[in-house]
Nucleic acid binder design. Sequence first.
DNA 1: TAGATTGTTAATCGATTAACAATC
DNA 2: TAGATTGTTAATCGATTAACAATC
Lengths: 216, 216
Amino acid sequence: MNSKKKVSIAVVRRLPRYYRYLSDLLELDITRISSKELSARMGITASQIRQDLNCFGGFGQQGYGYNVESLFNEIGNILGLNNKFQMIIIGAGHMGQALANYSNFEKRGYKLVGIFDVDPGLIGKKIKNIEIEHYDKLEEFVKHHRVDVAILSVPYDRTRMVADKVASLGIKGLWNFSPMDLKIPYDVVIENVHLSDSLMVLGYRLNEKFKCKKNK
Amino acid sequence: MNSKKKVSIAVVRRLPRYYRYLSDLLELDITRISSKELSARMGITASQIRQDLNCFGGFGQQGYGYNVESLFNEIGNILGLNNKFQMIIIGAGHMGQALANYSNFEKRGYKLVGIFDVDPGLIGKKIKNIEIEHYDKLEEFVKHHRVDVAILSVPYDRTRMVADKVASLGIKGLWNFSPMDLKIPYDVVIENVHLSDSLMVLGYRLNEKFKCKKNK
DNA sequence: TAGATTGTTAATCGATTAACAATC
DNA sequence: TAGATTGTTAATCGATTAACAATC
């Protein structure tokens, strides 16, 4: 059932993965699937699948398995894809612009409503029909628009300041692309995308797997 | 000591974080730190820090703690930041270009040596002094250059094909930006950056934290 | 030396897996 | 009904935390 006790973050981080596999199954016109079949596809145990899903409800049926479409929808709901979080991007450098052009926000429950930067060369430029505004206008903007989430793609040394500002304006979610762990004295949900961490881990794993030292 | 037994991935994924905090300490001209002090800064237990580090060696000194600079260097070594992995980008769309412009590859042990795409409008364009080449030229390119790692930033429906191609050419590392779990019949290390998964988890956590339902 | 702090072993906690009664 | 497969409890495994002897 629903809110018995807190679902562990490990489980939550697997949800998008289930969602993707179910989406694939839908594409393949597969209407039902057992935890066993799904486990074979995903390379995890059937036990784990059943345990994970049962954190949120009994979506299956004994002797039958799970209806793909309905499970897909359930997980979508759990992930809040039907939400319409209003989102802004702060920092319209290469990464900020790439994210602005990212087309799947809507499908994930987000709507891009503003882009901010400090570079005069960028102000006024339109991406996805949204004009880049000066960072100075952020506070004014937030007064007139609901903003739920901010994407942080500013240079390293501005991150802390911008994050504090954003949080102080009451924005509740931060998608942080800076290689920095934010500590914020407000009640904010922070999701980090530490690209360079990921790259370093890749390096470690490569060295580990192919121990026979490369010539540098 | 070194290769007693396999270090768990959980530990490895914390290494870049240690590395960042040590880098900060260096900036602050702090020369020594105890696991206790570091634990306070990082918000993890001192036990965990000592356990983690001791997977790789005894870097500390009883009664003293750890020398910041030397620990920083040790972790850098473990993460292979002194490697010179040669890397290519496949898919020079918004994300691919943003990554090409990412400046910290060198510091992480990587060197960008090629960019490939299929869009005629992009071929010949230079980013960071590297000319975008047609994807058809990839095979030829790999014959003449060592390529250790490929960044995959191609559209969803091309991912599988490109990944197989890349792996068949003997490229050993994949940094995958597609929202897809790759299964490859070769010996390849894959590090996934599932941005949209991260965004969905952010949505979940926001809903969870601020249960008082938003008006959609 | 006395105090501090590590490296490491032991205890605890949480997450994953196995097992099986319930039931479609 | 018989077979299949869930939901859920119990067992196992691994990761985190605590404790402390070793030692700088």
